[in-house]
Amino acid sequence: MTLAHAHPGPGADPSAAGWPALGAALSVTVLYLLAARRLRRRGDLWPRWRDGSFAAGGAAVVWAALGGHPGGPFTGHMIQHLVVGMAAPLLLVLARPLTLALRALGPGSVRRGLLALARSRPVGLLVCPPVAGLLDVGGMWLLYRTGLFAAVRHQPLPHALVHAHLLAAGLLFTFAVCRLDPVRRRWGLAVRGVTLLAVGAAHGVLAKSLYAVPPPGTAFGTADLRAGARWMYYGGDLVEVALAVVLGVGWYASAGRARARRARRERAALVA
């Protein structure tokens, strides 16, 4: 899933870029809440916190899109980057939107199409954790370590596209690492854990390098640059720990289920 997302860069017109993002985030959130209500009305269990998580993710995107961020221009940009690329994707993915859609949709062509898409080969390749991780953190290295950042900073449309990419790549990476929704191939804990380690390290190294050397073609104040780099470093840590907790909870639950299965089998063997 992708949300059209735009945001007002320094020098851009906030209303022109912010409203489409606001509309998209709002409509996707309303769709989610309606689908969850449909499930509950027919008696399915769908935890309430997932509604809250999705709504918070939508609200985070809107907040980032509407502008007015604290700190200097680089710090403000970086906080926005953290919210759009990491925090919002985590909140949205935790709510298992694909599972909800597949359960809420009645049998029909829409549901069949969605299922075929989720199980298709290209999607399978995209949600392979290392591929998703490379698209996510690779895009960030391109943005901050080439002239791209300086080129798009003052142009509303390319800037909006960069942020849309950030959101899409963040969603893809979070989706692939958390593995909460059903897709073509279920990658194991080792692949997802090592991917998280590699992406976290690449993110941290980029943050530290930004502390010392600004993106080419930009001239941010030293204090602003350093504050932004710290935000990127520690904010990245926070989201990384959150992702690790998601992986840990999944492992703990599946290990418990495996143990219960073994115990049942042994009891059955004893009886037989």
């Binding site: 854990g193 998280l196 380690l197 976290g200 390290a201 690449a202 941290g204 190294v205 530290k208 390098s209 502390y211 010392a212 350093r226 780099a229 710290r230 470093y233 840590d237 990384e240 720990v241 690790a244 907790v245 992986l247 840990g248 909870v249 492992w251 703990y252």
Partner: peptide, 30 residues
Amino acid sequence: FYDRSTTGAGLLSDGLLHTAELLMLVAGFF
């Protein structure tokens, strides 16, 4: 936070270690 004399290899190893430590804390807890 960042010592300017750090080499590229040092920066990379530091990033990997720092990330690994966070993951170890969570993994060890579970």
